[in-house]
Simulated assay, not measured.
Amino acid sequence: MAFALPVWLALHEELLAHGAPDSADPLDDFDDDALFQAFHLTRPCIAFVADAVRVRMKNNAAFRSPAAAAAAAVSVDAAVLVALNYYAHGASSADVLQRVGRGRLADPPALICGVSEVVAGMADQFISFPLLRDAKLHVASQIKEACGIPHAIGVLAPAHFRIRAPLTRRSQVICDSEGNVLSVEKCCVGGTCEQEMWETSFKGREMEEELHGPYWVIGKGYHLSKHVMTPVSEPANDNEVRFNEAHAKIHDVMRTTLGSMKRRFRCLMQLGFAQECSLDKKADVIKACSVLHNIAKKFSVPAPPAAGKIEPLHPGNQNSVPFNIDPEALQARQELIQRNFSVGSASKDPPSNAGENL
């Protein structure tokens, strides 16, 4: 979820205090327009990312892998810019490599893998699922304000990322009503159905085991359950139609979020940048781009303009195994629709009671 501005400012001050920038700043070779064209981020945002990577690589021994070592062997700023340029365009620009490396970058793919590993590891700082009561109430109140559905702490969907045609990878993503990524996990083969991803994911198990309390996530293509709110498959009255319209409205936030990510980080349109990088490394790229998406939103960096239509959410493969709808979940959805989407209805629950009664 989005961090409060004072928290981000304090973190930025700590990064600056513990990580001195490289003496020759490769950012100086770019004016602001060229910088955005090359990296799809602004100067303050890139400087923040470079500072965070520098501190992370210096203080965490877990990143002493061969790939991370390759990133550390050159200027951290240069390594970060090589990776950001790849994320932005899906290929490394010869001009950027020359400018930031002065012709001394021998293995750009290894740098990209190394920086991706480090930035993906920063997910514990910059991708935050609401855990505390106040955080859950805040996310739930924003979603309710956006669409009218109460007690929801995220929008759930699988994201498709191409590797090499016709192969794809899918990651399970949860976002809030403002498009901040709250969770990204389960990088699996493209044919994996939504329900299987949810049932085997950490967040899915946590929610279905009541570890996050009586809240929903809003999803489509999943089984209706105690903690996954799906649309009514065959609406029988105006109340259910209104509910489905509200469900579609908030679910469209995920489509917009993933579309924005893929415009900013065009590498997500085709992840086959280096044969020596395993699928785990490609998962690092996906998570790294999710981290950078949240950082870019905090710095209010606009996404590049869309070249065409926003890519729709893929429906995925439905599980062919028959299942029985949980009668308690079905009743809870019907009660929610009756309370919140009948003619003239308006939820009387004050924000402090959100999530106490499904």
Rank of each mutant, 00 (worst) to 15 (best):
M1F: 07
L16K: 15
G19C: 12
G19E: 05
D29K: 14
D33H: 14
A34W: 12
A38N: 14
F39N: 06
T42D: 11
C45N: 04
N60M: 14
R64T: 14
P66G: 14
P66K: 11
A68L: 04
A69M: 15
A70Y: 06
V74F: 06
Y86I: 09
Y87M: 13
Y87S: 03
A91V: 12
A94R: 07
A106L: 08
P108K: 04
V118P: 15
V118W: 02
A120T: 10
S128L: 08
P130D: 00
A135R: 12
H138W: 03
A140H: 07
A140Y: 03
E145K: 14
V155Y: 10
H160G: 12
F161A: 05
P166V: 00
G191S: 13
G191Q: 07
T192S: 15
E194F: 04
E196C: 15
M197F: 02
T200Q: 13
K203G: 06
E210I: 00
Y215T: 01
I218N: 01
H223G: 00
M229H: 12
M229V: 00
T230D: 11
E234P: 14
N237L: 07
N237R: 03
H247L: 02
H251Q: 14
D252E: 13
R255D: 02
T257F: 08
L258P: 09
S260F: 09
S260T: 14
S260V: 13
C267R: 09
L268N: 08
M269L: 10
Q270M: 00
F273M: 02
A274R: 09
L279R: 04
D284M: 13
D284S: 13
A288E: 01
C289P: 05
S290V: 10
N294P: 15
I295D: 01
V301R: 02
A306W: 01
A307I: 03
I310A: 13
P315T: 02
Q318F: 10
Q318D: 12
F323D: 05
N324I: 08
I325F: 03
I325T: 12
I325W: 06
P327M: 01
P327I: 01
E328H: 10
I337E: 03
Q338M: 09
N340K: 01
